[in-house]
């Protein structure tokens, strides 16, 4: 009888936890949604300038990073699946691959930023101030949006690393995997945001 009560409570907790995670995701959608709106409004106002500024973006690097993030999402989903099947070793391998791919994304992104800095394309730079308002706006939005996204990837990597430790110590297993599932939802959200960032900054030019 006590077992049953505990089981019901556990069930309610995991459902509540997942609902809470989704609510957090909605707040993130609103947060990034407003930035996308800002981008859309300025793009219609400075169409030519956005077009010109986008020529500075390297489509190949953007495509590579998109592929990396999509693949990391696959391994995240696989690792949740492996936990549900109770395959601890496999879960750890899949989750480690997810983390490595997340770090790779950040490393590539920072080299990309450094290349922009090298060309003098950063907020408040002399090169940028000689260009028009539209170009300044494009790079402003680029740094804010990819920067905030990068922060999310960084937090995601940290959270997934904690999950890896919890799996290793047996705190997350076949019977209790809600934390890993919710961390996975967050990681997929980060992927979703990038799926929209990629065409806006790298493709449309």
């Amino acid at each position: 009888m006590n077992d049953m009560a505990a089981d019901v409570r556990e069930q309610a907790d995991t459902t509540g936890g997942k609902l809470g995670m989704w609510l957090f995701i909605f707040s993130e959608i609103m947060f990034f949604g407003m930035l996308f709106l800002l981008y859309a409004v300025y793009r219609t106002r400075h169409a030519a300038a956005f077009h010109a500024a986008a020529q500075n973006m390297d489509t190949a690097i953007g495509t590579l990073n998109t592929a990396i993030l999509l693949t990391s999402s696959l391994f995240m989903a696989l690792s949740v699946h492996a936990t549900q099947e109770g395959r601890k070793r496999l879960t750890e391998i899949f989750l480690s691959i997810t983390i490595v791919l997340g770090i790779s994304f950040l490393v590539i992104k920072s080299f990309e930023w450094l290349a922009h800095f090298h060309h003098g394309l950063y907020p408040g730079s002399v090169v940028l101030s000689r260009l028009g308002k539209g170009e300044i706006m494009f790079f402003g939005l680029y740094y804010v949006m990819t920067g905030l996204h990068g922060v999310h990837v960084f937090i995601g990597v940290a959270v997934l690393t904690i999950m890896l430790v919890l799996i290793h110590t047996g705190k997350i297993d076949k019977t209790k995997f809600a934390a890993l599932e919710n961390a996975g939802l967050y990681w997929h959200l980060v992927d979703i945001i990038w799926i929209f960032l990629f065409p806006l900054f790298y493709l449309i030019k």
């Binding site: 999509l70 995240m76 989903a77 997929h188 992927d191 979703i192 799926i195 929209f196």
Partner: peptide, 11 residues
């Protein structure tokens, strides 16, 4: 379409 796939299957 990509986001829909991620939402439906991965999430």
């Amino acid at each position: 379409l990509k986001v829909l796939l991620v939402l439906l299957f991965f999430m």
